[in-house]
Design a binder for these strands. Structure first.
Lengths: 183, 183
DNA sequence: CAGCAACCGGACGATGCTGTCCGGTTATAC
DNA sequence: GTATAACCGGACAGCATCGTCCGGTTGCTG
């Protein structure tokens, strides 16, 4: 039933629904990364080569769309083996992460958002425990502290002007390294 | 706030220009503090009891308006006697500061913005030197680090949901205290 | 007192986004 | 082969904001 054909694929019919969904998520990822959460729905639909109707059918609200995008991205984050690696991955998707965080504050009760929050909490908890066991992070640091660091990193790097992004990045990494390292 | 509506005070003529300017700045301060930089120009004019034409005449762009508002606020910041006190003052105006920072990244070359940047840099430099001399802050910390901390504090507190604002505040303050304190 | 220049305030056209609705197309069932 | 149901895509009306423009008022000057 769910058989994916290459070649001259029709853009209509039930089989195209999954394709459209993927195209929309990909387009939204690029738009969010470029312009934050403020981008217009119409722009996302245009980039995906899909009508606005289809966009609203798949994702009635912007929060659900953002959640779908980030659900994909979090897979990448979960490959990190240490907090440092997690920070690297977060920074690489800084604008995306910041956009998602903006969405979170306005809709904490959406199930999809909660699910992502739990995945992040579990991930951070595991990495923190490992780093503390290895003596790389002070025992006084709590999971909430690390989540805060992640948030700050994403927002700060995302908001920085392009020419000072590199400086901001190294400086904030060093700052947080001081904050987390054992006394 | 409600301005002086008493007596047969004409709202026209050259003398009213300065009054209008003050009213606009006051209205903009409240609007920015409530809704960030995204508030509509029309809303600011309405709150100030002034026509849109007058708003655009005094402040052609939103950046200039934000700069005028923050130029007022920075007087308060300069009363701080230590970095800790500066952080307190920044957090008290968190939403305002965050709104202004957003304006800065989109118009770094505006003279009014540059002027405020210089005042902040001078202020932070002086406080940092004092705190380092007193042994409260590590000598390895640079002025740019502190400016980064200020930015992060403002943005983080401003973006937090009301119910977790208190927790975010204490946690980030503790985190940055660890980062800045001598080894 | 009369003319002038500055300034005020709101109306107004333009622009862009939102969310819905419907004609048309395609796979599937019979 | 034909009927049916699902789904696509773009048009469209509604809405908010932007930035300008102009009639009207006020204080100043000769």
């Amino acid at each position: 039933m769910a058989d994916e054909r290459e070649g001259p694929r029709p853009n209509r019919g039930p089989a195209a629904a999954a394709d459209n969904r993927r195209a929309l998520i990909a387009a939204a990822r690029e738009e969010f990364a470029a312009g934050g959460l403020e981008v217009a729905f119409s722009a996302i639909a245009r980039r995906a080569g899909v009508g606005q109707g289809s966009l609203y059918r798949h994702f009635p609200t912007k929060i659900e769309l953002a959640a779908a995008v980030f659900e994909d991205n979090i897979d990448e984050l979960e490959r990190a083996g240490s907090l440092d690696a997690l920070f690297d991955a977060i920074v690489a998707q800084a604008r995306m992460s910041a956009a998602f965080l903006d969405a979170v504050v306005s809709a904490r009760d959406v199930p999809a958002v909660q699910h992502i929050g739990e995945r992040m909490a579990v991930l951070v908890g595991a990495l923190l425990a490992a780093d503390q066991a290895a003596g790389r992070v002070d025992g006084a640091i709590a999971r909430e502290d690390v989540l805060l660091v992640v948030t700050m990193l994403a927002r700060t790097v995302a908001a920085a002007a392009p020419e000072e992004q590199a400086d901001v990045l190294t400086r904030s990494r060093a700052l947080f390294a001081r904050a987390l390292s054992p006394r």
